[in-house]
Nucleic acid binder design. Structure first.
Length: 257
DNA sequence: ATGGTCGCACCGCGA
């Protein structure tokens, strides 16, 4: 029985709630990893998500960040944050066991500008994620790292690569930090299905970026090697970037046999 | 035209 896993930066679950519920009804995915909830867990629309047939594991905070895992199956052994006593005030990482896999929903820091303190925070956060994996997880398990990574891996992830050279989404340092995470034991499941690239998951709200398809692929589904062999399809649901009140990110879907 | 949009919480900040 195949299972479909989705990652989607919703840019406010309060504003996107009806779209998320319609998406669940339309695709009936097994698991959905959400990012940028932008609210505290107490304000998460748990009752409506559960009425739609999903369990929810949530790590929220007021105003910023916030991640969740929705699943048709119960979500066990949930861990929130890195618990590394560095700066765990950002709600950016949650992991649990569901649908026969270990699944993480991650919202990597954007990084602001390379001159801002947010940029070294991003690089340090990525190193902390690698340490978390080294300490708490096993690359031989079936594990998915899903989320808004805020990294475009190469020119195939960018409509206009010349306009994104050496930014916080593309710098050698962030790409090297993502290499370190991948080398823990991941395969880019979406790229494996679409080696030709040029399929995007994010378009700036400004400058008609979506109608021009001037986008980037910064939302990713990384699978451990055994699990990646079971990936049979991957897609971006561009419909969710259309119509009233879209998120600037579209959902990325991956189906496993 | 050298900008142009969102969402949140307030009139700036983060993306």
């Amino acid at each position: 029985m195949p299972s479909t896993v989705v990652t989607w930066n919703v840019n406010s679950i309060k504003v996107r709630k009806e779209r998320v519920l319609a998406f669940l009804a339309r695709h009936s995915p097994d698991v959905v990893c959400l990012q940028e909830l932008k609210l505290e867990e107490a304000k998460f629309p748990r009752a409506e998500i559960e009425a739609a047939g999903y369990h929810a594991a949530v790590l929220g905070q007021k105003t910023y960040n916030g991640v969740a895992i929705l699943s048709k199956s119960p979500i066990e052994n949930v861990h929130r944050g890195f618990a590394d006593d560095v700066d765990d005030s950002h709600a950016r990482f949650i992991i649990g066991t569901t649908a026969g896999m270990r699944i993480a929903s991650a919202y990597f820091p954007n990084g602001g500008e390379q001159t801002s303190p947010k940029y070294p925070f991003k690089l340090a956060w990525m190193k902390r994620l690698r340490v978390y994996l080294d300490t708490h997880e096993k690359p031989n398990d079936d594990l998915l790292l899903c989320g808004d990574f805020n990294v475009a891996v190469d020119e195939l992830d960018i409509a206009k690569p010349d306009q994104w050279q050496d930014t916080v989404l593309t710098s050698d340092a962030v790409r090297a930090a993502l290499d370190e995470i991948r080398e823990w034991g991941f395969v880019d499941a979406f790229r494996q299905q679409h080696p030709e690239g040029k399929i995007f998951s994010w378009w700036d709200y400004r400058q008609l970026a979506f109608p021009k398809n001037d986008g980037l692929r910064i939302d990713h589904i990384y699978a451990t090697k055994g699990l990646a062999k079971r990936c049979i399809a991957a897609a971006v649901d561009r419909e969710e970037r259309k119509g009233a009140q879209p998120s600037d990110h579209a959902p990325v879907l991956c189906t496993f046999s």
